[in-house]
């Protein structure tokens, strides 16, 4: 286990699905050769097929301590990459701009489709990055020890010199957040913007987020917002906890989506989306988390002060991010919680 652990909390109640984080990451890290189809950060509509397609049904992670590698997603599972006939449209008299090929799948292919519940449509957005797990299945699966977890901050990285592109890591990752660059013959993934963190700046996806949904800091730093949300107030959960990798990206679940005629009623009293679906994503504990969030909301609605809601508003960068200076990483005394 690393001495400290960087963590991110994402408030799904605030995600607009605008993909600004996706583009910030794409321009920052994955616009090189062989990386065309990679989105280290993606935002997918839930319920939905996800990116890569049906990643949540593929497998991976651990089962009673044993690695359960899955199939490797195909390029079509990730979604095609294509160009438009701009030249023909602009100068050749084409009536419209069209893709060069028939498009059958793209990331967030089923955008805003969602599902029906009692005749009403519902959906929400799920932004995803590498979970920088405490027990990374990718690291356990790599026969070359090319994947390592940084001792100082828990960020999981792939040594591009040691990687031979065997892709056991892709098969092992239950979140399918590792990508293969066929031209380089290397596996690549989200690096939690460690070069930015080392300069005191926050991750590009978090910094660009117009909805201010992301919180970044050390999970073991008692002064960090991520620590308060995850460890103290316990209002954020990791995805698919049963996969056994102990993810370090946490989500505040959608707990009170608006609905005509149900003002004041919680999702537990008058479900706007099926609780079963949230339990599927976050485990049984999501029910307790929603109760806590509802209680905090009631406090605020009755004129009280809720620290949880004040934090989740994320008024400014000082509230949302606590980026440690390198010397801090040594000095921070981890908080102790049962």
């Amino acid at each position: 286990m690393s001495r400290h652990q960087y963590s991110m909390v994402l408030d799904l109640n605030k995600c607009l699905g605008c993909q600004t984080c996706t583009m910030a990451c794409k321009k920052m890290w994955t616009d090189g050769d062989g990386m065309d189809y990679m989105y280290w950060n993606n935002v997918e509509t839930r319920p939905g097929q996800g990116y890569p397609r049906k990643w949540d049904e593929m497998g991976g992670g651990f089962d009673r301590g044993q690695l359960r590698p899955s199939e490797i997603p195909t390029k079509e599972d990730y979604g095609q990459t294509f160009e438009y006939n701009y030249e023909a449209r602009m100068y050749g008299g084409a009536a419209s701009a069209q893709p060069h090929q028939e498009v059958r799948n793209t990331p967030n292919w089923d955008e805003d489709v969602g599902a029906l519940m009692l005749g009403e449509n519902y959906y929400f957005y799920l932004p995803r990055i590498c979970n920088h797990c405490t027990n990374p299945a990718c690291l356990a699966a790599c026969p070359r020890s090319a994947i390592y977890k940084r001792e100082e901050d828990g960020i999981v990285l792939i040594d591009q010199e040691r990687c031979e592109g065997y892709r056991h890591c892709i098969q092992a990752c239950p979140y399918k957040k590792i990508y293969f660059n066929e031209l380089l013959g290397k596996s690549q993934k989200c690096i939690f913007c460690y070069p930015r963190l080392e300069k005191g700046d926050v991750n590009a996806c978090a910094k660009q987020c117009p909805g201010r949904i992301r919180f970044v800091g050390l999970l073991d730093d008692p002064h960090s917002t991520v620590h308060k949300l995850v460890k103290v107030h316990k209002v954020a959960l990791g995805l698919f906890p049963e996969k056994g990798t102990d993810p370090n990206v946490f989500y505040v679940p959608p707990f009170n989506p608006p609905r005509t005629g149900n003002y004041g009623k919680s999702i537990l009293e008058d479900p706007r989306l099926p609780l079963d679906y949230l339990i599927y994503l976050f485990g049984e504990e999501v029910v307790e988390v929603i109760r806590r969030l509802e209680a905090e909301l009631k406090v605020a609605q009755s004129g009280g002060r809720s620290e949880v809601l004040q934090l989740l508003i994320g008024r400014d960068a000082g509230v949302r991010y606590q980026i440690a200076q390198r010397e801090d990483l040594v000095q921070i005394q981890p908080a102790r919680h049962a």
Partner: peptide, 9 residues
């Protein structure tokens, strides 16, 4: 334009 990866698997 970037050079594309033709396949992942």
């Amino acid at each position: 334009l970037v050079r594309q990866s033709a396949a992942t698997n």
